[in-house]
Amino acid sequence: MTYKLRVDPVIHGQYASLPDDARAQLAACLIDALADPLAHSAPYGADDGVVRTIARGHVAGVIIIGEDTITLVQIISIA
């Protein structure tokens, strides 16, 4: 199953303001997670299979896995 991506406009604004390389790294993480979110993410705290972390290079994000959606809820830029 391929999941649908949901991004709040505020989070999208943060994404749009990232440097090009960080934006590309986060986009790659999200694309991978859409195909298989558990395989392409790590637990965020306790492993509930719902709140997960994605990371690559200098950027990380927190996602929430729904029934058929992935919601990006936080972006962390690692300088």
Rank of each mutant, 00 (worst) to 15 (best):
H58C: 06
C29W: 03
Q74K: 13
A39G: 02
V62G: 01
I63S: 15
A79H: 08
L34S: 00
A79T: 11
D47S: 08
I76G: 05
Q14C: 13
M1P: 01
A28M: 04
I76V: 15
A55E: 04
Y15M: 09
V62D: 00
L18Y: 14
I64E: 09
I78P: 05
H40Y: 12
L30C: 15
A60V: 14
V10I: 07
V51K: 06
I78Q: 06
A35S: 05
P37I: 02
G57H: 07
A39Q: 12
A46M: 12
Y3D: 02
T53W: 08
R56G: 05
I65G: 14
C29M: 03
I11S: 08
L38V: 10
I31Q: 00
H58K: 10
D47G: 06
D68T: 01
R56Y: 06
A42W: 15
G66S: 04
E67Q: 13
H12M: 14
I54A: 05
Q74N: 10
G61D: 09
V10A: 08
A27G: 06
G66H: 03
I63A: 13
D8W: 08
E67S: 11
G66N: 07
S41I: 05
A60K: 12
R52P: 01
A60G: 11
T69Q: 05
G61M: 04
L72P: 04
P19T: 01
P9G: 13
I75A: 05
D20F: 12
L26N: 09
Y3K: 04
P9T: 02
V7G: 09
A60L: 09
D47H: 08
S17K: 13
G66L: 05
I78L: 11
M1G: 01
A24D: 07
H58Q: 15
T69Y: 03
L72N: 15
V59M: 00
I65T: 09
A35T: 14
V59H: 00
G57S: 14
Q14Y: 10
L18E: 12
A28Y: 01
D8I: 00
G57F: 07
P19E: 06
C29V: 00
I65A: 08
P43D: 11
Y3S: 04
G13W: 11
V10F: 14
P37M: 05
G45P: 02
G61E: 07
A22L: 11
D68Y: 02
G61S: 07
I70S: 01
I11L: 05
I64L: 11
L30E: 02
I11A: 12
A60F: 04
T2Y: 02
A39E: 03
I11T: 10
I63K: 09
R52L: 03
V51C: 07
L30T: 04
L72T: 06
R23A: 10
D48V: 11
H58F: 10
D68Q: 06
D20L: 13
